[in-house]
Design a protein around this nucleic acid. Structure first.
Length: 115
DNA sequence: CGATTGACGTACG
DNA sequence: TCGTACGCCAATC
């Protein structure tokens, strides 16, 4: 058995699940909240596993720092799944980019930092 | 076991 | 302002 730092992945799943409906977060923000922002890529890897863990992690609520749906192609149901889900939550997405992303941005460092 | 990849981000030109 | 290069860290080939 290799006791990898599942703490990182676990935290990622926890945080992503805490993202409220109609809100989105970024890999960098999550990574920064957990691993001091040095492993934004690891968050993406965690998301890749997200489809293999349970309950499934709302990976569609996690995008890159510019609000671009970079990972939509990784969804099992199809590349449109991510956008459809986000639109269904009240978000507006044009050209795979979330409009007014700043307004919907859910930062765990802030939201979870509230006493 | 070594090299490459990867759903990112920041720095530099 | 836009484009390219590099760094992180783990998993996969």
């Amino acid at each position: 058995m290799k006791k990898t730092n599942n703490h990182f992945f676990d935290e990622v799943y926890q945080v992503v699940r805490l993202i409220p409906k109609g809100r989105v977060s970024t890999y960098g923000a999550i990574a920064k909240y957990i691993a001091t922002g040095k492993s934004a890529r690891m968050v993406g890897w965690a998301m890749n596993k997200a489809g293999s863990v349970s309950p499934k992690v709302p990976a569609h609520r996690v995008v890159n720092r510019i609000g671009l749906l970079t990972g939509k192609h990784h969804f099992n149901n199809g590349p449109n799944t991510m956008q459809q889900l986000l639109e269904k939550e009240g978000l507006l997405i044009i050209d795979d980019q979330i409009q007014q992303f700043e307004l919907f941005f859910w930062d765990p460092m802030i939201e979870l930092s509230i006493e």
